[in-house]
Simulated scan of single mutants.
Amino acid sequence: MIGLAFIRTALFAETLEMSTDINAVIPMAALRSSRDGKLPVLYLLHGLGGDHTEWTRQASVERYAEDKGIALILPRADRSYYMDMKQGAAYYTYLSEELPAIAKSLFPISDRREDTFIAGLSMGGYGAFKLALRQPERFAAAASLSGSLDIVHRLSEPEVFRNREEERMFGSVVEVQGSDDDLLALAGKVAAAGNQPQLYQCCGTEDFLYEGNRNFLKHAEKVGLRVTYDEEPGGHEWSYWDRNIQKVFDWLPVDKNR
């Protein structure tokens, strides 16, 4: 019998100025055996077309979390790219400031850096790396699965701005390039500072974001940012993500003696 608490939370987010949702998965057996009544936590981010329910609907992350004794926090970020949007809500500020405070007040999760991890797929892979690289003092590890990591390259593709959605999020390519929303620029800053979180990156070789993933990896190697990288055949699809999120759970630097 799996000892899990699955908690659905609806709340008003002051930063977003609207109602939003958070799902949480709490492994109860691990909680009962925890010395301090707190669990290591993985913030798990959804993709552009998904929401806070997709990881639990499409993959077996509840079982993987139970096996590893890790709490999951699954926030809703809509179609935001985890940005403080040029025309829209301040999702980055919400995810980086308000959400952690809410999660720690509601759920039995640790606030230690060494117990705090973040991962995501596609848009969420971009969000996970951005949050971890902009706040390396908060996250011990971050993982991107098929992430949109070279966002400048992605925004430069002619078809991307066809419905102006990305323009409402990011503004222009010129505004993004070299900013803290540009992961390649962030990689150089974090590598130079010497306080990087552990990073895991994977992408399927048939994925339309594969070239951007290779661009990020090449740049990370150039600037001295350490990345554990994995690739295999696969597209932008749940069969790939469910298989590879298991590798992420195995890779996470969880303190087994906590």
Rank of each mutant, 00 (worst) to 15 (best):
L48A: 13
L48C: 09
L48E: 13
G49V: 00
H52C: 13
T53K: 15
E54F: 07
E54G: 11
T56N: 01
R57F: 14
R57D: 11
S60Q: 12
V61R: 00
R63H: 09
R63A: 12
R63F: 02
R63Y: 08
Y64S: 12
A65Y: 12
E66V: 00
E66W: 09
D67Y: 06
K68A: 07
G69K: 07
I73R: 06
I73E: 02
L74A: 04
P75K: 02
P75W: 02
P75I: 06
R76Q: 15
R76V: 03
R76K: 11
A77L: 01
D78N: 11
D78L: 06
R79G: 07
S80T: 06
Y82W: 12
Y82M: 13
D84S: 09
M85V: 02
M85S: 05
K86H: 14
G88C: 02
G88F: 07
G88S: 10
G88L: 00
A89V: 09
A89G: 12
A90Q: 10
A90K: 14
Y91F: 10
Y91W: 07
T93R: 13
T93P: 11
T93V: 09
Y94L: 11
L99D: 10
A101D: 03
I102P: 02
I102F: 15
I102L: 15
A103I: 10
K104I: 10
K104A: 15
K104W: 00
S105F: 06
S105R: 13
S105V: 00
L106K: 11
L106H: 05
L106W: 14
F107K: 01
F107Y: 15
I109K: 04
I109P: 14
I109H: 10
S110N: 00
D111C: 08
D111N: 14
R112V: 03
R113G: 12
E114Y: 08
D115H: 08
D115S: 14
T116A: 04
F117G: 13
F117A: 09
F117Q: 06
I118R: 08
A119I: 02
S122W: 04
S122R: 01
G125C: 05
G125M: 06
G127M: 07
G127W: 04
G127A: 08
G127E: 03
A128C: 11
K130I: 11
L131I: 10
A132H: 02
A132V: 09
A132G: 09
L133W: 06
L133R: 12
R134L: 09
R138T: 15
